[in-house]
Design a protein around this nucleic acid. Sequence first.
DNA 1: ATCCAAGCCGGAATCTATTCGCTTGAGCCG
DNA 2: CGGCTCAAGCGAATAGATTCCGGCTTGGAT
Lengths: 162, 162
Amino acid sequence: MDAPDRTDFDILSLLQKNARLSNKELAAAVGLAPSTCHERLKRLWAGGVLRGTHAEVDPAVLGVGLEALLLIELAKHQREIVDSFMREVVSVPEVRAAFLITGRYDLVIHVAVRDTAHLKNLALDNFTNRPGVTRIETSIIYESVRRHDLPVLTTASRSELD
Amino acid sequence: MDAPDRTDFDILSLLQKNARLSNKELAAAVGLAPSTCHERLKRLWAGGVLRGTHAEVDPAVLGVGLEALLLIELAKHQREIVDSFMREVVSVPEVRAAFLITGRYDLVIHVAVRDTAHLKNLALDNFTNRPGVTRIETSIIYESVRRHDLPVLTTASRSELD
DNA sequence: ATCCAAGCCGGAATCTATTCGCTTGAGCCG
DNA sequence: CGGCTCAAGCGAATAGATTCCGGCTTGGAT
């Protein structure tokens, strides 16, 4: 928690790409004994650096045939409206992510649905007539790419190296 | 691969929330013997239903202090330009996701950076002067929420139940 | 009724995780 | 310079999980 070093960053990088790596494999990859690597892992979990692990599933198998971004404008940025929106939106199963942003729009919501009919119902039932929502632009996702590992931007990773 | 049933969906749901569940715990949770559950897991991996697992890391620890969405308009939807964009954008470490969409914008790119200076450089160096890009709107993310499990939308999950 | 295939189970062998005491080396102070 | 302290690493031992079969049960088709 206190001071992650280069080895910790290596561990984090590897686990972001493949969380199923065994402790033994991980230890070999970062050049530590399994027991030592295990100590580090425990520290990273306990310190809240590692927050969870998630399996990636083929969306089609679950019946997800369409994804979209909902670009939403709010009438006013009342804290109560915004906070409740962010709180409640995540309980909608079709919502994958919600972003409260600056700029022309106020919210971007990423949803996963079966088809266009499902998308229509979801948008109308859950978003269009919410209090504070003045407008929604629906953008269908043709194609998406993803990176599962965050960049390591802290300079510590480099200063430790020198 | 061929026909996932309700138990498979249960397994997938659980692993999307916590990929570190041991096979033993998973088996107990879905009401199977560990050996049987293990068979199913192997099938799901082999069939491409399970595609990977990823650890979630505290962004601040990695030096990520700011995230943003880049809303991009392209001059024309030439396949060559679009394809190369999607192909190359994922190799930029700061890019977390890129969406090719319908509507007013053509691309939405989710980036993770250190601060506003870093964001400026990233936008100007990697996106503004790319061929085909006519305009970029940068939206800083104030707050975001995420759901790591996709909805189960296939009716098979219910018909198997009856 | 019989056969077949699919799914499930229990147990054995193997491999892994996890703990703990010891060692090493770096930094610090007397 | 010598020695103290502390953090990090290591290896061995034990506890626990994975993984592979062989056999059992069930449900459907012939």
